[in-house]
Design a binder for these strands. Structure first.
Lengths: 117, 117
DNA sequence: TTGACATATACCCATATAGGTATATATTGC
DNA sequence: GCAATATATACCTATATGGGTATATGTCAA
């Protein structure tokens, strides 16, 4: 009936700019809630709520350290977003079609050589 | 306040799965509303409303042909989504870090002569 | 213990939604 | 003119939201 919950999937979770901002801040490395409050200028409860949403869709993880909770990005949750939108990439950037070849190269090199990453 | 309107940007617009489905159908080429109604199983007003949202964020265009309106994708509107999410790609796929080099190569090749920074 | 600190949750409220149904606005053909 | 087709819009309703404020929970320090 209404819009899907923000916790329905990563698409809905990252539609909120504040949550993208939080993810961007966490991309550098783990941070306590405290720090996110300062950096975003949001209220502490608001940050906690945004983190809850991000946690529920698996985009962040929390690690307890004393009375702090250190949050970090778990980017695999964002992969469906990337996978979906990247199918449209060739429509705005023809040159990227050539990346298919490059990716094939990398893939074959990975399988053929057998060198572990 | 409340959540941002779906028409606020592409992030909010494509958070709705039905709208992604519509975009996916249009990715093959332009289609009249009629056809989208059949293929999605949604009601005609619902499809028109989803198309309105997609139009407002610039993700689709309409071309008039008699009493039909042929819709097509304008993928440039999806680029901010791609640009944002692709910054997280290296976090789930290490191998892609090597694409930075490849992209640099393509960019320099595109600019032709060496315009050093 | 007391108090300060760090984080999560409960509650309130205005708002935009998505689907449903009915209707308005073309456009074509007779 | 009228009817049929194609699409858009108006209206209704239940629902989840995000910010605000107050409070609960948990942890450290003296």
């Amino acid at each position: 009936m209404s819009r899907l919950p923000t916790t329905a999937d990563a698409f809905n979770a990252v539609a909120e700019p504040r949550r993208r901002e939080i993810l961007d801040l966490l991309a550098d490395g783990e941070r306590p809630v405290n720090e996110l409050v300062e950096l975003t200028g949001l209220g502490q409860p608001q940050v906690s709520k945004h983190l809850r949403v991000l946690r529920e869709v698996g985009a962040v993880q929390a690690r307890e350290e004393g009375r702090r909770r250190l949050y970090s990005v778990d980017a695999t949750a964002l992969r469906p977003v990337f996978d979906w939108v990247s199918r449209y990439q060739h429509l705005w950037e023809e040159r990227f079609e050539r990346l298919d070849d490059v990716l094939e190269e990398l893939k074959q090199e990975d399988q053929g050589d057998g060198d572990d990453d």
